[in-house]
Amino acid sequence: MTAKPLPACLLVSLLGAVALPALAAESGFTCLIEPMQRVELRSPVEGRIDAIHVERGAEVKKGQVLVELDTNVERAALDAAKYRSVMQGQIKSADSRLAAAKDKFQRRDALVKERYIATQDRDDSLAEMRVAEANLVEAQDNQRLAALEQRRLNETVEQRRLRSPISGVVTERLQAVGEVAQSGENAKPVLRLAQTDPLRVEVVLPVAMYGKVRRGDKASVDAEAPLTGRYTASVTIVDRVVDAASGTFGVRLELPNPKGEIPAGIKCRARFN
């Protein structure tokens, strides 16, 4: 039985399906350079904004204090707790009373053995000594509690100092000094930040490229005009689900940007080595 030749239109379609990915691989695939992550900086507690140390476009480091809320009340309580945690007056007073009660008991005990006083007198002095011991323990416990209160208030003050969770840039400043920062996910953020080192490059590839690109592969990334730089990025994510409607799948690249020379939010062309 002789095989029938394929219709010309079908043959052209099949050849095009094979040729287009090859042509795209040579010219590069459309991609987009974006920040690795975007962060909205909100306050964990409600309070009046006392200071904002950065403006839009400022570079920030992870852990840097960006915003400070009013802490006058908390700092006053913290100073009091610090003082109580180092006070020695109550402990020394209780220690002195305990020493006197021990001496008194020892004298009474000796007198009882000589039968100069009643046993009840010695028992009373023993009870006084036990009370003095308890007072000393209570004074020591109060000092430890003051130290714990100091730690708690330190954390309260620290909550009112908003630090950057990433290294990057400030993309937007949404509140001003004197406004009240609200807490919660639905609250208005004080600042918006973007991590610019490394950057991420999102590429959409045709399904014919599936299996040809793997994690760890290198790719050349050309920024769109008027930028002319060519950079090397590494594949970090290859989607395992193909979009049936478009016949494509997504790939993410990681692009180092230690000097911040590459702007985020621009289009590019990616070629895989």
Rank of each mutant, 00 (worst) to 15 (best):
S220M: 14
G63M: 07
R173N: 06
A81V: 02
A132N: 06
L111H: 02
K4T: 14
L253Y: 07
R108W: 10
V203D: 08
I117A: 05
E149K: 03
Q64K: 09
L126V: 03
P256Q: 11
M87Y: 05
I33D: 01
A147T: 05
I33F: 05
A132S: 08
K92I: 02
G57W: 09
Q150E: 15
T156I: 05
I117Y: 05
Y83P: 00
D141Q: 14
I117K: 03
G229A: 13
E55L: 10
C31V: 02
R151E: 15
A244D: 14
G178M: 06
M1E: 12
G89K: 12
P7M: 00
A264T: 14
E128W: 08
S27Y: 09
E138Q: 14
I52G: 04
V131Q: 13
P258Y: 13
T232M: 09
S85A: 15
T228C: 01
Y116Q: 08
E155P: 02
T156G: 00
Y231I: 02
A101Q: 04
N257H: 10
R271K: 15
A270G: 09
N257S: 08
L111C: 01
R160S: 00
S13W: 11
R107A: 13
C268W: 08
V235Y: 09
V12D: 11
A81C: 03
G16V: 00
L32K: 05
R97I: 00
A127T: 13
R173E: 11
